[in-house]
Write a protein that binds this DNA or RNA. Structure first.
Lengths: 114, 114
DNA sequence: TCAGACTGTAACGGACCCGAAACAACCATT
DNA sequence: AATGGTTGTTTCGGGTCCGTTACAGTCTGA
């Protein structure tokens, strides 16, 4: 399925969702952070720091720090890979799933009222 | 016109656009900054610091600082209101318009390939 | 076994952002 | 002209994020 958006529609959609994110009570995540979060939830596991860094074109410390802060918010959790203890596997959490479900609602609602 | 998006579609769209923003060369704007930028370009002028702060539910220094950084990037410009010299009028720039046009393209392309 | 390659993380210095409060410039009413 | 209220900005202390670099733990192949 394909969705056609005019320039004004695209920008209005983006504005409205950004506006909702700024105004709500949740702490603002950076674009990088939501990108990481969405990658974890949309793509198939396993997810490692190295893979995420490579995929997003950023350095590994960026991923580590994003996981630190999103971990504090309980949007994501970490576990050692027992098969190769150098690796850290990034996992989903209930709260992270709820956060994204709410984000999807916001996007969907704004798109509907374009 | 109304656009219906499933949960997965909404999140995929958001992910893909965030991904494109992270990967490109432009400096990453925060969610607040793009929200301010889009408000300036989508809503009718005049725009003042006070109005933007009230509209977004943030303090005035947040707006001032966002205008500082986006001004350095030439995405926005400031001018004194000659009719009431306390006011600062926020204005669009060519580069800002191009930036948003490109953002709209990115959003449109990702939406099309949902 | 042990040197080298590979993981993720910590440390560092610099830049930016935040909210609250103080501030300077300006207007308006008296 | 003076005063009080308005504007946007600056300052302050504290926090987060950045990239680079250095590091500690883990694997692997000679």
């Amino acid at each position: 399925m394909s969705v056609a958006l005019s320039t004004a529609q695209a920008l209005t959609l983006w504005h409205d969702v950004a506006f909702a994110l700024v105004r709500d009570d949740e702490p603002d995540l950076s674009v990088r952070q939501v990108c990481i979060l969405l990658t974890i939830y949309l793509e198939a596991p396993p997810h490692t720091v190295r893979d995420l860094a490579k995929k997003l074109g950023v350095t590994k410390p960026v991923i580590t720090r994003a996981l630190d802060t999103m971990g504090k918010l309980d949007l994501v959790s970490r576990r050692r890979d027992e098969k190769d203890r150098r690796n850290v596997l990034i996992q989903r959490t209930v709260r992270g799933a709820l956060y994204l479900e709410r984000l999807a609602d916001t996007i969907g609602n704004r798109a509907k009222s374009l």
